[in-house]
């Protein structure tokens, strides 16, 4: 067999594996995506706008994005505390707690949903004492908030952990030798160098919470305009065969999420320039 002197690769199989990969990718991902785009473009701009700005939709989006943001903030703060304790301190059960951090990521969402509901229901182990204090968690927006915190826990911790571990202790010693007290060192030297990782973790937690379904719908009241999350509204519209509405909401969610991630990426890059990690 005579082959013209042309570009060839050393290892065989490129053509075949590439072809198979592209085929599989097209069938499983591109085709469904195409369907989504097609459906979106069936709507005129006015129709699209009408669906998206309807009262119920707007409220659902507000609830989804607003509570996700708040929950991600909580995870930002608590995640920092947790990762600090896990990396820098020794205490009994530390290894166990480190392993536990992954559970919200590994646990099926439906299981998380029913467990959290049971826990915070009026007669639940935590719900009961809270009810005494007059705080109702289950079937209210607070419940949604709690569930979103739950699923976001691993993101900040796991993203920051390797960075914190790799931090050069000499930097802290330098700061101390220059007269900084511990407070200064932590807040002016250490935490700033963690900012890119913190932002990434925040973005991941945020994005996850926005799209979350299983963990949230049990504990949410699912009352339209009050405690209805956007993913649930999509499901309802689908069951009503209002495909266009469902698609419109989905597209808004996708766009908003991508925008936020993009903004956070920018912030990260800015932080990296101002406070390079190395």
């Amino acid at each position: 067999m005579s082959i013209a002197v042309a570009r060839r690769s050393t290892l065989p199989g490129f053509g075949l594996t590439m072809g198979l990969t592209l085929t599989w990718l097209s069938i499983i991902i591109l085709l469904p995506l195409a369907g989504l785009f097609l459906k979106t473009f069936e709507l005129s701009l006015d129709q699209f706008w009408g669906i998206v700005t309807s009262r119920r939709t707007l409220n659902a989006l507000k609830i989804s994005f607003g509570l996700s943001f708040a929950a991600a903030l909580v995870n930002l703060v608590m995640g920092t505390i947790i990762v600090w304790a896990l990396v820098r301190y020794r205490f009994p059960g530390r290894r166990l707690f480190d392993a536990i951090v992954d559970i919200p990521f590994a646990l099926p969402t439906a299981v998380a949903g029913v467990a959290l509901t049971q826990l915070f229901a009026q007669k639940g182990w935590l719900g009961a004492p809270l009810a005494e204090l007059g705080i109702k968690v289950a079937f209210t927006p607070i419940g949604i908030f709690i569930a979103m915190i739950f699923i976001g826990i691993p993101f900040v911790v796991r993203t920051v952990q390797p960075v914190l571990i790799d931090l050069d202790v000499e930097i802290e010693e330098a700061a101390a030798s220059l007269g900084a007290n511990r407070w200064h060192t932590v807040f002016r030297v250490i935490l700033p160098s963690l900012i890119p990782a913190l932002l990434t973790g925040f973005a991941l937690a945020f994005a996850r919470a926005v799209g979350e379904y299983g963990s949230v719908i049990f504990i949410a009241g699912n009352l339209p305009n009050v405690s209805e999350i956007a993913p649930l509204l999509i499901v309802i519209r689908l069951s009503e065969f209002r495909y266009a509405d469902a698609t419109a909401i989905a597209v808004v969610m996708l766009l908003a999420s991508f925008l936020i991630i993009f903004a956070v990426n920018r912030l990260q890059r800015w932080a990296q320039i101002r406070i390079p990690t190395h």
Partner: peptide, 23 residues
């Protein structure tokens, strides 16, 4: 060796065109 390919030119081993074969 046949682990890379030239853009132009000939390689022959014992008189045979080696570029017709892979490594």
């Amino acid at each position: 060796a046949g682990l890379d390919w030239p853009d132009a030119g000939e390689v022959s081993i014992d008189g045979e065109n080696a570029l017709a074969r892979g490594a």
